[in-house]
Design a protein around this nucleic acid. Structure first.
Lengths: 116, 116
DNA sequence: ACAACATACAACCAAACGGTTGTAGGTTGT
DNA sequence: ACAACCTACAACCGTTTGGTTGTATGTTGT
């Protein structure tokens, strides 16, 4: 079983979308620094518990955090590997740029060459 | 003049939002690899010219690409520095996680210490 | 001069988003 | 037993998003 390209793009969509909200980024910071229950997180923000819970759910669906049940609490924890996988998508982009620069350098190295 | 934290968060919102669409990520790949006119880009996708133009505008507002006018064409080019700045936001997140791990290691190093 | 081309932008529309309140079910402490 | 607590989720609502078509304006080549 090999993951299709569409699945990767779906994952990228979900991850970047999850990161495109400052409340969610803030939640992610907290749960990367340590486990927090959903209600402990909710206490930090000026919005309803349900709103914060939705943000947590978005982060979880994107794979950026995981939750484990302990009694009546749901403890959320940031997944650093997922964060790194987003970073590697960006370095992949950078490598495209490097290819472009390499091509330009090539042109400079051999100026006014007979073309082909 | 120092940029406020809110402005940084606004930039982050815009950048992650811009990256949270596969068409826009694809456009960004192309213009990181080399300059392309908006209509040359539009020809690649199964949607209207106006739709692609909007995607380019979103990327431009986020600072991920720049455009320069050459005659009747607008040539778009990817800004690798902006891509790197997104990457550094992610490594900042990672460092929070490292702090957490450091704290755990500390606990393991000095088990059952008298608590202060 | 003028037709073809490239861009920009407004107006519109369905779908998704980010918030709300309300309801329901499992867990805990007394 | 039961009140307080934690979580989950549905229903609703205004705004934003991603697409469309249409129109206006500038540029190029013949």
């Amino acid at each position: 079983m090999t993951t299709t390209e569409d699945q990767n793009e779906d994952r990228a969509d979900a991850m970047f979308h999850a990161l495109a909200d400052r409340t969610r980024r803030d939640i992610l910071r907290r749960v990367l620094a340590g486990e927090h229950s959903v209600s402990a997180l909710a206490a930090r923000y000026d919005m309803s518990f349900a709103a914060v819970q939705k943000h947590v759910a978005v982060l979880e669906r994107a794979g950026l955090i995981t939750k484990r049940r302990v009694g009546r609490e749901a403890l959320a924890s940031g997944d650093v590997e997922a964060v790194r996988s987003v970073g590697s998508m960006l370095t992949d982009l950078e490598s495209l740029w490097r290819g472009r620069i390499a091509r330009i350098d090539e042109l400079i190295a051999t100026p006014t060459e007979r073309n082909e």
